[in-house]
Simulated assay, not measured.
Amino acid sequence: MIQQRFIELGEGYSDIYELLELMSTNSHRIYKSYIFSSGDGPAERLSFAVSFSPARADSHYMPIYICREGITYSADKPSKRYNLFVEHAEAMNASPIRVEVKHSSQFAEKDLFYQYIIGILRLNHLLPPLQ
Rank of each mutant, 00 (worst) to 15 (best):
S95R: 13
Y17M: 08
F48E: 03
E90W: 01
L46Q: 13
A49C: 14
Q115M: 15
C67P: 04
N124V: 13
Q115H: 12
L46N: 04
Y31P: 01
N26E: 03
R68W: 05
R122Q: 15
F36E: 07
L22M: 04
I64A: 08
E90F: 00
H88P: 00
V86F: 04
V101T: 12
L123H: 09
N124E: 13
S27Y: 02
A49V: 06
S24R: 10
H88W: 04
K32C: 05
Y13L: 13
F6R: 08
Y61G: 08
Y82S: 11
A91F: 05
L121Y: 07
I16K: 01
D40S: 13
G39R: 12
R56L: 10
K102F: 11
L121R: 15
S51T: 05
A91E: 09
L20N: 02
Y116M: 02
A94Y: 03
T25M: 09
S59K: 02
E11A: 08
Q115K: 13
R5Q: 05
A55T: 10
S51V: 01
M62H: 05
F36S: 11
V99L: 12
I35P: 04
I30N: 02
R5S: 02
M23N: 06
Q115D: 14
F48V: 00
Y73L: 01
I71C: 01
I7P: 00
I118M: 12
Y31A: 03
Q115Y: 09
D40K: 13
A57T: 14
D58A: 11
I35H: 05
S105I: 12
R68V: 12
M23T: 02
R81M: 00
G119N: 14
N26S: 05
R5K: 09
L20M: 07
S59F: 08
